[in-house]
Simulated assay, not measured.
Amino acid sequence: MNAATDTTTADTRIAEPAKSAAKRPAAPTSIDENHLDESPRGLVIMAVVGVLVGILSGLFGIGGGTVIVPALVWLGLTQRHAAATSMMAIVPTAVSGVASYAFEGDVDWIAALIVFCGMFVGGQIGSWLLSKLPEIVLRWAFVVFLLFVMVNQAMSNPSRDSRIVMSVGTVIGLIAFGVIAGVLAGLLGIGGGAICVPALSILFGASDLIARGTSLLAMFPNAITTSVANVRRRMVHVKAAVIIGVVAALTAPFGTWLAAAVTPRAGAIMFTVYLGILLVRSVFVAMKAMKTTKTTRSR
């Protein structure tokens, strides 16, 4: 009897900690749960992505998140961590692009400051949403964003001579727009240029080159503040961000030179085609993720 009682007591003592552990909330997801390919092949791919991002950043005035995020997901990061890592990679890319456009006088410093004020608030909201929303929602949000920007870009016919005319209405509009762009930037891991450039041209009358230079200037401080928030939430793969960002910063001036060499309409068409390719791929990835989720739930 005593032996049986001792055995029962021992079993109870073992079971109680197990029950307690089961009741404990799961630890927050960390970067260690991602499996980024850091082999020589993976590092080469990151470097190639950096080259493409730098050229596209200078050419279209974007941060390059539309390239960085899908590439990092392909290399093993979740959509959430890829978006957060992309924001950090955008910082040196944007700085390099701004320097190139500013050298040619194609930056509206006042408009960029106003847009950044809105983006700062929106970026914090976007970063918070990034840590809360399900993975599948983030993928489809990226698809909807690409479709919206592609349609707007196809409809635009930018001028190379126009500039932003400041008024009270313009200032309010730039701030409101900055908040929206900041939310999208923090949520999707983009710099915001893919929405800033067409909006600055269509809504505020900037030339194509000024829209690109101003967009890059407005996005890089927002990328810094959003990245700080993402780092605190342990969502950034710093090594990948540094590799892509540094390489992109070195190649961005070449993209800026290309932007000035083509006509505004040609640039808009090229940007639309680029977004269309990304849209097709993003829809495929989102649908594949939905099938995977359904299969997992059915088991």
Rank of each mutant, 00 (worst) to 15 (best):
residue 198 P to N: 09
residue 150 M to W: 04
residue 208 D to K: 07
residue 211 A to G: 14
residue 193 G to P: 06
residue 204 F to E: 01
residue 214 T to D: 06
residue 150 M to A: 15
residue 157 N to R: 15
residue 214 T to A: 04
residue 151 V to E: 02
residue 173 G to E: 02
residue 153 Q to E: 13
residue 147 L to M: 14
residue 201 S to H: 03
residue 155 M to W: 15
residue 178 G to Q: 04
residue 159 S to Y: 02
residue 140 W to R: 04
residue 203 L to Q: 05
residue 183 V to L: 04
residue 173 G to P: 07
residue 171 V to A: 11
residue 164 I to Y: 00
residue 152 N to T: 10
residue 216 L to A: 12
residue 223 A to W: 07
residue 205 G to P: 00
residue 227 S to K: 00
residue 174 L to P: 04
residue 148 F to K: 11
residue 172 I to D: 14
residue 231 V to M: 13
residue 221 P to D: 10
residue 143 V to K: 11
residue 225 T to I: 10
residue 138 L to W: 13
residue 231 V to D: 07
residue 175 I to S: 08
residue 214 T to E: 09
residue 169 G to D: 03
residue 224 I to R: 01
residue 211 A to I: 09
residue 141 A to R: 05
residue 186 G to M: 04
residue 193 G to D: 08
residue 152 N to M: 11
residue 179 V to T: 12
residue 168 V to T: 09
residue 153 Q to Y: 06
residue 181 A to Y: 10
residue 228 V to R: 01
residue 227 S to C: 02
residue 205 G to A: 03
residue 190 I to F: 12
residue 176 A to N: 14
residue 137 V to K: 14
residue 140 W to N: 01
residue 184 L to F: 09
residue 217 L to Q: 02
residue 159 S to A: 10
residue 228 V to E: 07
residue 231 V to R: 08
residue 139 R to D: 10
residue 160 R to H: 10
residue 187 L to T: 03
residue 207 S to Q: 05
residue 213 G to E: 11
residue 170 T to M: 10
residue 146 L to F: 14
residue 163 R to D: 00
residue 191 G to A: 06
residue 210 I to N: 12
residue 184 L to H: 04
residue 154 A to G: 06
residue 229 A to W: 09
residue 154 A to S: 14
residue 208 D to Q: 15
residue 197 V to G: 01
residue 180 I to A: 09
residue 190 I to S: 06
residue 153 Q to D: 09
residue 149 V to C: 13
residue 206 A to M: 06
residue 180 I to W: 11
residue 192 G to P: 07
residue 219 M to F: 13
residue 168 V to G: 08
residue 153 Q to N: 13
residue 163 R to E: 01
residue 179 V to A: 05
residue 178 G to F: 10
residue 146 L to D: 03
residue 149 V to T: 08
residue 155 M to P: 05
residue 150 M to N: 08
residue 188 L to V: 02
residue 191 G to I: 00
residue 164 I to F: 00
residue 164 I to E: 00
residue 180 I to Q: 02
residue 191 G to C: 08
residue 202 I to N: 11
residue 138 L to P: 08
residue 218 A to D: 08
residue 223 A to T: 09
residue 198 P to E: 02
residue 156 S to G: 09
residue 171 V to K: 01
residue 231 V to A: 13
residue 153 Q to R: 08
residue 171 V to M: 05
residue 154 A to W: 15
residue 185 A to T: 11
residue 201 S to W: 00
residue 184 L to R: 06
residue 152 N to K: 08
residue 168 V to Y: 05
residue 230 N to E: 01
residue 146 L to C: 05
residue 196 C to E: 13
residue 209 L to H: 15
residue 199 A to I: 03
residue 198 P to S: 06
